[in-house]
Design a protein around this nucleic acid. Structure first.
Lengths: 358, 358
DNA sequence: AGACGGGGATGAAAGGTTTCAAGAGCGCCC
DNA sequence: GGGCGCTCTTGAAACCTTTCATCCCCGTCT
């Protein structure tokens, strides 16, 4: 992550490059094929209306001139884009790349392409990308927002760019949203730990500007309340981001506590944190789950392959992405579209990190 | 990955949506502000040349009309795009997302934005995205190609779209490329295993259409030759993709062999394969590294956190991305640009999966 | 007082495509 | 042989910005 970039000295070899050429447009193609502009355009957009012979001539001309359609001009005139964008929180988190896979799947089925952007949990980047995508007039935007109250986000749909919020629920009347019930997820995790008899439980997550984090914590608190336990039993460790590195930091803090005050279990707001926490605690000599039980969130592929296979709250990732993309497509093609809020239910996957030997 | 999408039944709530509005252009803004078209454009592109008073009027008009610049029109006229694209092999592989992070970094420093696309190791998708990006007239394309002999790929630069090949070296005179010496990486891995006394070694990787895979295998063979061992000591297990799931499959095959013919070590073409292999072998009762030593490739963040911390060949991921983006920027802005081939050197990181207790 | 210069604003042209109403060519039928 | 209908092609308008040469207004210099 950071060690990574110890400046290795690379070898370089150089060569001169060829001069830059000039692009051929429909006009040139039309001239070369001996037809009119309109015909070339027809070959491009409605090949069935042009006679096979003419089409062949035009296609030959295109090939020989190396014609490349200018999408800006096309879009300017035609007014429509064939592109969806998914603006993710963090490309390094396999959860989001799995969601993205679902999005791609649905988009491909509809003949659209997907551009991925990443805000890296930075509100300014998010805003900049939203502006850019709006200016590009993409067909629609899927977003896992960092700042869900952003006025930018709210204004987009009213200006004609459909937006679907992914992995978050907005009470707003302007968007569709597809989410997983994070409060319930938090409850599942903590109830499980309570059932196992844990009483001092750490909650590791942050920053609290991220909705998912807040909801999962809320779920944790509810589970305590339901069980009739005081909220003070939940020790909160706030992190600066949802990354492995932050998880290690939290592990350091946890392991540093005297054994009689140290929590016996930890619930992490996502698997990246959990993996970092696990790694650090193990390397500092804590046994998992005997000294510290750990529950993660997302059930990413690496959770199962971890040093101690991780108990985690699973979400239907690809389905989430696919559903979101389908809602977006409906919104941009169906005049009777109604905004929807779709909520999936998470599921607890129990592994060694809480239950020990099976 | 696949279990993921057991169809959970979501709850849905619906609401009616507002009707679609009509967009305001420079023209409307000019009218509202009582100035000419050109002035509005100046406010947008060269604010310093317009008087503060006029500028304020125009900006007010923009805000009240909700003006959004039409990027297609801008690009059509101005001829330049402010976007780079990185077409990756697999967004689910943390190696590539780390490279992407480096790309973003360099792009942001230059005031550009990055669109990520993923070919998912599918040549048709790759081709489709290349066409799309060329038509979009992006400023340049960074690509980790699946099909490096694609004529599409070769033709792009000659038509005006700069291309930098990432994590692969092309002997071609048309592109810059940034890579890590994969042959050397393979040698490092195998030499390490040979030094530890292993004689029957598995090579797990594929498909062989992917250059990295081929090079790493080639390095493995060289190491054997150097050590004076027969190539038959390298047992090749070919996989269909570089994924955790394929790794599990390979693990299944390996563990099924009778102990006296089973390799005592495995070198995997990437960490995803290695993690899958590790997981499967452990769950089938093999001890790592006692029964089977494992070396991965890429040293992704999860390698260290694995069930048995993974020995792996590390590459400077972000640096790779950053360097590639910088070359691309140079190519598209510097008229004296010379194509370069930059090669970084990989490094072996030894952990428990080969050396056992330290 | 008149010429000059410069900061600001202007308006028309240009950029490559799609769209669409209209035209051309041709075979067929009465 | 003339008219009709059909298929295919045409050419110009429109999409929205940016660009750039031009113009205007005023203060300044001689």
């Amino acid at each position: 992550m950071s060690v990574d970039d110890a400046e290795a000295l690379p070898e370089r070899t150089r060569r001169r490059r060829a001069p830059k050429p000039h692009a051929a447009g429909v006009k040139a193609v039309a001239a070369a094929a001996g037809v009119s502009l309109g015909t070339v355009s027809n070959v491009l957009n409605r090949p069935e209306v042009v006679s096979p012979l003419t089409r062949a001539k035009v296609e030959a001309a295109m090939a020989s001139l190396g014609f490349v359609r200018n999408e800006s001009a096309r879009q300017l005139r035609a007014g429509s884009s064939r592109i969806l964008a998914y603006l993710m929180l963090d490309a390094g988190n396999p959860f989001f790349t799995d969601v993205a896979k679902g999005v791609e799947e649905a988009a491909q089925a509809a003949g659209l392409s997907v551009f991925l952007c990443t805000s890296s949990e930075d509100a300014d980047r998010e805003a900049a990308y939203l502006d850019l995508l709006e200016q590009q007039r993409v067909q629609g935007i899927l977003i896992t927002p960092i700042d869900q109250n952003s006025s930018r986000l709210r204004k987009l749909p009213s200006r004609g760019t459909p937006v679907v919020v992914v992995d978050r629920t907005l009470d707003d009347a302007e968007h569709c949203s597809v989410a997983v019930n994070d409060i319930l997820g938090g409850e599942l995790a903590i109830s499980h730990l309570l059932e196992l008899g844990h009483e001092r439980i750490a909650y590791v997550g942050g920053p609290n500007t991220i909705g998912q984090v807040v909801d999962r914590r809320e779920g944790a608190r509810r589970a305590l309340r339901t069980a009739g336990q005081p909220l003070s039993n939940l020790i909160e460790l706030t992190t600066g981001a949802l990354t492995v590195a932050e998880g290690r930091g939290a592990g350091q803090r946890l392991a540093g506590l005297p054994a009689d005050r140290r929590p016996t279990a930890a619930f992490c707001a996502n698997d990246l944190l959990a993996l970092g926490l696990l790694q650090q605690c193990v390397s500092l000599g804590l046994r998992v789950p005997e000294d510290l039980a750990i529950v993660g969130y997302d059930d990413i592929e690496f959770a199962e392959a971890a040093a101690v296979p991780l108990t985690s709250v699973r979400q239907p990732r690809q389905l989430l992405g696919r559903t979101a993309a389908e809602l977006l497509l409906d919104e941009s093609s169906n005049p009777d579209h109604e905004h929807q809020r779709v909520t999936f239910t998470p599921e607890l996957v129990v592994r060694t990190s809480t239950r020990g030997t099976l």
